[in-house]
Structure formats: C-alpha cells, structure tokens
Design a protein around this nucleic acid. Structure first.
Lengths: 156, 156
DNA sequence: AGCATATTGGACTAAGATGGTCCCATATGC
DNA sequence: GCATATGGGACCATCTTAGTCCAATATGCT
C-alpha cells in the first residue's frame, strides 16, 4: 500500500550517492557506476532532479551534478515531490458536484488529514538521515507520543 | 504523491455509507444509489470488502451487506490493506544482491521506517472518524514537533 | 578552430497497473 | 419455481510506469 515508485527509490539512491561525494561534481556516468543503476535511467533521473532544484548541474566537459544544498536541508517530502509530482493522497474521486449533493464528502476530508500527517512524516526526514546508516534517526514517533525523543525502545 | 487508488476512495465511501446504515443490510443497489458510484463498481468493491472481512454478506433475496464490526474498530490501515493489498512503500528495487555489495542499502531501510510511520498514522484513524464529519478527530499530530521542520512552507 | 565530453529536452516503446463492465453460478425468500 | 441477491471470476480500455534513445547545446582542452 501507498508505495513510492521505483524511480523515486532510484532517485533517492542517486541523491544519497551525491551526498557522499560533495566537494566535486559527479557525471551521470560516475553515478551509474556508483549506484549500479542503468545509465539512461540515471541520466533521466538526474535531469528531473536538476529541474526540481535538488541538484545543480555543470554542463560541458568535466561537468556533472552536485547537490544544490547540504543533505540536511533536503527533506524526503521534497524528494518525493520532485520525483512523483505533487499528487495528493486522493484526487477526490468525484471532481464534479455529485460529492457535495450527497453528503459534503467528509471522507475526502479525512483522507486529506491523513495525507497531511504523511507529509509531515516525510518532511521530518532529511536526505542526511537517509544517507547515513542511522541506527537511530529522528523519525517522527507516532506510536508513543508520551515520551518525546527520550529513548524510544524498538517496538518493531 | 503517495496516492491511494480511486477504488480505495470509493471503498471508503461505501464503508461510510454502511456505517450510517447499521441495523439492517444494504444491497449493492442501495449502496450504489446512496453513494452515486456506478453499480458494477460497487458490486466489485463490496465483494472485495467482504472477502477482506470488513463487511459480511447475506445472500439471496433480501440479502445485502453490513459492516462486520462497529466502525470504531475498523482502522484506515485495514481498509487500505484490504483494498490495495499489503504493498510496502518500497519493494526495495534491487531484489538481488547488488544492493548489499555497494552500501548495504541504507536507503531502503530508511524508507521502511517512513513506511512504518505512515502505517501508524493510518492505524490511528478509524472508520468512525472517517464517517462522522469530525472537525476534531484523533489524528496523530506530527506537526507539533517543530524543532526541525520549523521552516516548512505550507504548500498544501 | 576542432574535438571529446557532458548535460538538456524530448520522443518513443513495452510492460504493467488501474478502472470499470459484464457474465454465469449459487443462495435465499416468497 | 421465480425473482432477487451475492460470489467468483473473465475481460478490456486506458493510464501510468520504467526504461531507452536521439539530436541539440554547452564547456574544456589541445
């Protein structure tokens, strides 16, 4: 349920790779070799990421891509936005007025709230969190809200 | 991004309708009329919901469907599970060992955690919450921990 | 200047998921 | 037995996704 596309997964891998190689630019070829993702796919993804302003590009020989910002200030939400478009969790199925007629569509509203919660979760996680192998990383803790970030015992 | 399918949306509407008509059974026809969803689609959805044990059915004349449990004990997570299958947020793109070779796929792990957070959010909301027009309903409050996402612009 | 190296933008196709409809078998009440 | 229901599919049109490829443009180096 609620899956992200494979492209988004790849895109994240690419961003992680770039995060680990800050300081210089990486060509699409470098990234393809480093991530083992097929070159054409890498090229496509990097173009999208560049257009979405997550990476900035340098054309010509010796050119390549680099993160446009430090990994800490790139959120998972942004990544998903750029790679999948800003689709909402539900494009309230009934676009016309049928919805209003019957019962003001409380359902759609509820899904919207859930959607917002999900966005928040994605907003909290940064590329830096995704990049480091973080055995403990600041993911929003929905289940046990009593103890803030004190020490979350692994309930999973 | 992260959208649920239209069918899931419809299915939720149907469940909401049934929640509002506890006490008797509703035929697929009733539901179709009440929700303005095309009959064949309603039939299909109700069959799926019945198989998923969210509604129970009564065959024959005067038959129909009814919620199998009170709305309070049906979570949004269950609804999504039944209607979309238990797909994860990412089916770790690289199923073979390439992943391990390079960097142990910390990315997939991170997405998994995000996935878990989303599940939690969906687990918290019940069908009853979806059914009533609830201006205040017990959705997990992720936004309140403003320590790290203070700068997010409201883009939805 | 000329060439090799890179990104840019887009077209393009194959495969798969999704949305939606329909048919026939089966069960039940009158 | 007949009308009314659900049960379990098959079925197809269409949209999305994944992936590839090509021509154009920009830059560095000799």
């Amino acid at each position: 349920m609620l899956r992200i596309s494979k492209l988004t997964d790849y895109g994240t891998m690419i961003l992680v790779y770039l995060a680990a190689h800050t300081g210089g630019v990486c060509s699409a070829n470098d990234v393809a070799n480093g991530t083992r993702i097929a070159l054409p796919t890498v090229q496509k993804l990097l173009k999208i990421l560049a257009r979405g302003d997550l990476v900035h590009s340098l054309r010509g020989a010796e050119g390549g891509y680099a993160l446009s910002r430090p990994p800490e200030s790139i959120s998972a939400a942004e990544i998903v936005d750029v790679l999948e478009g800003p689709l909402s969790i539900t494009e309230c199925s009934m676009t016309d007025s049928q919805c209003e007629l019957e019962h003001g569509c409380p359902v759609g509203d509820a899904w919207q709230k859930i959607n917002r919660a999900i966005r928040c979760a994605l907003d909290t996680v940064t590329l830096a969190d995704l990049a480091h192998p973080p055995h403990e990383f600041p993911l929003v803790d929905l289940s046990a809200r009593r103890s803030r970030t004190a020490e979350r015992r692994s309930h999973d």
